[in-house]
Design a protein around this nucleic acid. Structure first.
Lengths: 328, 328
DNA sequence: TTGTAGGCGTTATCAT
DNA sequence: ATGATAACGCCTACAA
């Protein structure tokens, strides 16, 4: 079907070894032979077979990316950024949408192993620690504790909610509610709730938590939010992500609650997408590009030098307040 | 490092061939041997090496997915759906974000070839026909003419804009503008503009086209739209996609133009994302799930039986009007 | 029912 | 400066 090494060798009138050498730029080659080989490669439209190469221990230049979903704008932007970074280094990615499905995540990990990927970037939220413990593969994690020896990259979730609450206070809010997951899971995102509670505590204010899980459907979230708006009548809401914040805005509108006059709302994530198409929303912006750069750097470092231990186990990147109309 | 076939064979006290047989469920095996082998596999946490397998002609169970971007909600939902479908069939995907970058798309194609993918689903918009012509690999295309022998799946773009324009008319619009790309490229999406022009023609109405390209930045789009709103003062706008429609809504709001009283707007795509977070927007919904199913079915059919020619070369799937407030 | 030998496309080692 | 050969991990004849 497609041309192989020996075809090129035949055409160029040299041995397979020589062709291999010019491909890998190994040892001493005469310019003349190089040229012959290059010409033959071009003529046959030759493409080295990655599979055969990595049977000899060469890298596949392939990374597994495990995230819950790409339809969430935050993950989409993060993954797209990761993909860009990796591409410039010659890496391709196998995209694994784990959803909320523990078994799918588990099967994907097996497949990645079978495909000899060079490493994994994991940001899903299903599996227990043990599954990742002994993969014998470079892994870095986003926003999630996987194991003691797997480095975590996340934004400074604590600082983020602190900023958000203070922004609401400064805008005059007296009764601030947190909308987000109440259930702690030992992950960095737990810090968001913690920051909210701590801050309210310090200010001697009552904490109001409206529990909405990441994996809840928008419909269910809407109902929960609506109930909260009606019963609690908060004048400020800090949300665990931008999408939830938009649902809050929508429900408020339906109920005739004016934003920002009667209610101020702030989100979390700060994707370009939301800032472009919901430009009214104030939010805490995660440094998406810095996160992806760090994830990729840490991973490639481990791939290229597996012995080297990472300097830190948890990298917390600073967030930024983006102030718009909803907290005016 | 990781266990291999011979390790399993040794542990089970059988030959490598036998282990291979139980893995592939080949020929006659005694239950006893099977059990021994299974046990050994489990004990060693054995995972067959896909690379070595497909060196023998076995399928890699890997598909390349080439699209412009995953941050566009439409592509995100389409790709996520494709990924789901393929996963249930045991396939993984290599995600290739081509952006508006011709060279990147070209390099990705080479990489996919080198990685021995079993097929490609292409939906990017950069390369000329020739690049895809002779890949010698099963390919299906979304919304784009790649070559005479590559089947295309798309929605019925023509019908979509017809529906949209008629919806605007029925809502009382007299002066309807089309916002979208003016440049024809020989792709199915060209039908959108054509449908607009034809329909306006039939109705003896003047066509107004506000040219905005898919790859324009939101900022540039905003400026173009603003100018059009001020100068043309349309009372109805049919957009080439939902995101553009939202920009129109935003600019209209800034200019104090009331929707739907002074201006009615309808989009195109109908993603869950936009329908959830911009639930006011009327739109023409593409049958995302049907599209992905068809793409995957056609591709797998070609992979499993390369000789078989597709029945059709262009599959046009019906669209659906989703009526909301913006065309009330 | 199970084992032996050869080969998939490439690279590393050892020659020359 | 270039070649021959074995090896990577697995699978498919062919044998037994």
């Amino acid at each position: 079907m497609t041309a192989k090494l020996t075809d090129v060798a035949n055409l160029a009138g040299v041995s397979a070894t020589t062709v291999s050498r010019v491909i890998n730029n190994h040892g001493y080659l005469s310019e003349k032979t190089k040229q012959k080989v290059f010409d033959a490669m071009r003529e046959l439209n030759y493409q080295p077979n990655s599979l055969a190469r990595s049977l000899q221990g060469k890298k596949m230049k392939l990374i597994g990316i495990i995230f819950p979903s790409i339809t969430n704008p935050f993950f989409a932007e993060l993954i797209e950024d990761i993909e860009m970074q990796l591409f410039t280094q010659g890496y391709k990615i196998i995209l694994c949408n784990a959803g909320k499905n523990k078994q799918k995540e588990s099967e994907y990990i097996k497949m990645l192993l079978a495909n000899q990927v060079d490493g994994i970037i994991a940001g899903a939220h299903n599996l227990g620690i043990d599954e990742y413990q002994q993969l014998g593969l470079p892994i870095v994690s986003f926003d999630r504790k996987l194991s003691d020896n797997i480095p975590i990259v996340s934004c400074d979730n604590y600082q983020g909610i602190e900023l958000a609450v203070h922004d609401l206070l400064q805008a005059g809010c007296k009764k601030i509610t947190f909308v987000g997951d109440k259930q702690l899971k030992g992950n960095p995102t737990d810090e968001r709730l913690k920051a909210y509670c701590d801050t309210m505590d310090k200010l001697n204010l009552d904490a109001h938590i409206c529990s909405v899980a990441f994996s809840d459907s928008p419909l269910l979230k809407n109902m929960t939010i609506r109930k909260m708006l009606i019963e609690d009548k908060p004048d400020g809401i800090t949300c665990t992500d931008d999408l939830t914040a938009i649902l809050v805005l929508q429900e408020a509108k339906k109920l005739g609650i004016r934003v920002p006059e009667d209610l101020k709302v702030i989100g979390f994530d700060g994707t370009k997408q939301i800032q472009t198409y919901h430009s009214e929303l104030s939010t805490i912006a995660q440094p998406i590009s810095d996160i992806s750069t760090l994830l990729v750097d840490l991973l490639l470092e481990r791939i290229n030098d597996p012995k080297k231990e990472p300097n830190q186990m948890h990298y917390k990147l600073p967030v930024k307040l983006i102030k718009n109309e909803t907290t005016a």
